[in-house]
Simulated assay, not measured.
Amino acid sequence: MTPKLNTKETQKPARKVTSGPIREKARTMNKLVASVGKVLKKKGYAGLNVASICKEAGVDRRLVYTYFGGLNNLIETYIVQKDYWVSSAKDIAVNLVENKEAPTSEDAAALLRGQFEAVYDDKVLQRLIHWELGEDNKILRKISDEREQLGEELFKLIEPSFENSEIDLRAVIALQVGGLYYLALHAQSNGSLFCGIDVLQPEGKQRIENALNKIMEMCYDEIPKKKK
């Protein structure tokens, strides 16, 4: 005689009751973070307050405090996601640091090109940079310090190669980072020529990137050759 199946034993495990609320919390948090960018784009940084962000997200304002502990933490979460050096470039930099690989000229140029592209294409990131330049803000200072910490790790890997050269690598990188920020902001905000180059046109943008690549090649060419 065929034994009867125990239906209680063959039933699939019950779905955890917490899975729904957890997913809902994650969705709400993502919605709030995204709404920071939407408000920033519409109203600028002066419009970043709990009421406007929650209205954009369509959620109760108490959730800002429940999920993020306050407005500043919410804004910081958004900025960290948008900041090129703290988000997009971080994985590349961390990989180089963990493997103790000194960045090549191609690596350095690629990181700088990535910064240029990120600012050039993102209106909200442009607003964040304007905000950082125009106001003393603890959140923005904290993120700036995080960029510096990451940069220090990269400089520790690369600077030894330049010890006996005449290249001040930190100064060269500082000029390029600052110049690329300004060129991207100027092109998108002003739209006029810069040194006769129209950065808004593909050929003008490519000229900037080509020059960036060449500068890094020239710097690396100054590294003293090791004697065989």
Score class of each variant (00 low, 15 high):
residue 171 A to I: 04
residue 203 E to T: 08
residue 169 L to G: 06
residue 194 F to L: 09
residue 205 K to D: 03
residue 164 N to Y: 12
residue 125 L to M: 13
residue 198 D to L: 12
residue 217 E to V: 09
residue 211 A to I: 09
residue 178 G to P: 01
residue 191 G to P: 06
residue 130 H to R: 11
residue 156 K to T: 10
residue 111 L to E: 10
residue 176 Q to S: 09
residue 151 G to Q: 11
residue 156 K to W: 11
residue 143 I to T: 01
residue 197 I to G: 07
residue 200 L to A: 10
residue 173 I to W: 01
residue 105 S to W: 10
residue 145 D to Q: 13
residue 174 A to V: 00
residue 170 R to A: 03
residue 173 I to V: 08
residue 104 T to C: 12
residue 172 V to I: 10
residue 104 T to V: 05
residue 193 L to S: 09
residue 162 F to Q: 06
residue 151 G to N: 13
residue 140 L to N: 05
residue 132 E to R: 15
residue 207 R to A: 05
residue 182 Y to F: 05
residue 116 F to L: 12
residue 145 D to P: 09
residue 196 G to S: 07
residue 179 G to A: 00
residue 106 E to M: 08
residue 123 K to Q: 14
residue 169 L to Q: 04
residue 142 K to W: 01
residue 104 T to H: 05
residue 208 I to N: 02
residue 140 L to H: 03
residue 152 E to V: 07
residue 108 A to W: 12
residue 163 E to L: 15
residue 186 H to W: 00
residue 145 D to K: 12
residue 158 I to D: 11
residue 193 L to C: 08
residue 176 Q to F: 06
residue 184 A to D: 00
residue 195 C to I: 11
residue 204 G to S: 05
residue 157 L to R: 02
residue 120 Y to Q: 08
residue 194 F to N: 05
residue 186 H to M: 00
residue 108 A to I: 15
residue 165 S to M: 01
residue 165 S to R: 02
residue 212 L to S: 04
residue 117 E to D: 15
residue 202 P to G: 09
residue 145 D to V: 09
residue 172 V to K: 06
residue 157 L to G: 06
residue 106 E to L: 11
residue 206 Q to R: 09
residue 110 A to H: 14
residue 139 I to Q: 13
residue 149 Q to K: 13
residue 170 R to Q: 06
residue 117 E to N: 14
residue 115 Q to R: 15
residue 214 K to P: 00
residue 161 S to M: 13
residue 210 N to P: 00
residue 140 L to D: 00
residue 172 V to D: 04
residue 166 E to A: 08
residue 218 M to S: 04
residue 208 I to H: 05
residue 169 L to A: 09
residue 162 F to G: 08
residue 157 L to Q: 03
residue 176 Q to D: 05
residue 191 G to V: 00
residue 195 C to G: 14
residue 131 W to D: 05
residue 208 I to K: 03
residue 107 D to C: 09
residue 149 Q to S: 11
residue 169 L to V: 09
residue 212 L to N: 08
residue 167 I to Y: 04
residue 132 E to Q: 14
residue 148 E to T: 08
residue 157 L to C: 07
residue 108 A to N: 15
residue 196 G to W: 05
residue 135 E to R: 02
residue 220 Y to W: 07
residue 177 V to C: 06
residue 193 L to W: 03
residue 212 L to G: 03
residue 177 V to S: 04
residue 164 N to V: 03
residue 171 A to P: 04
residue 198 D to F: 14
residue 172 V to Y: 02
residue 213 N to H: 03
residue 218 M to E: 10
residue 104 T to G: 12
residue 206 Q to Y: 02
residue 196 G to L: 10
residue 181 Y to N: 12
residue 119 V to S: 01
residue 129 I to C: 04
residue 192 S to D: 10
residue 160 P to E: 08
residue 156 K to Q: 15
residue 105 S to P: 10
residue 114 G to V: 13
residue 215 I to W: 01
residue 213 N to A: 07
residue 116 F to Y: 10
residue 161 S to C: 13
residue 126 Q to R: 07
residue 167 I to P: 12
residue 112 L to S: 15
residue 117 E to Q: 14
residue 136 D to I: 15
residue 216 M to A: 12
residue 137 N to V: 00
residue 115 Q to H: 15
residue 174 A to G: 02
residue 183 L to V: 01
residue 120 Y to E: 04
residue 218 M to V: 05
residue 199 V to C: 07
residue 182 Y to I: 00
residue 178 G to A: 13
residue 149 Q to N: 10
residue 117 E to A: 13
residue 211 A to G: 12
residue 200 L to H: 04
residue 187 A to D: 02
residue 108 A to K: 15
residue 148 E to P: 03
residue 193 L to N: 07
residue 123 K to F: 03
residue 174 A to C: 01
residue 212 L to R: 03
residue 180 L to A: 02
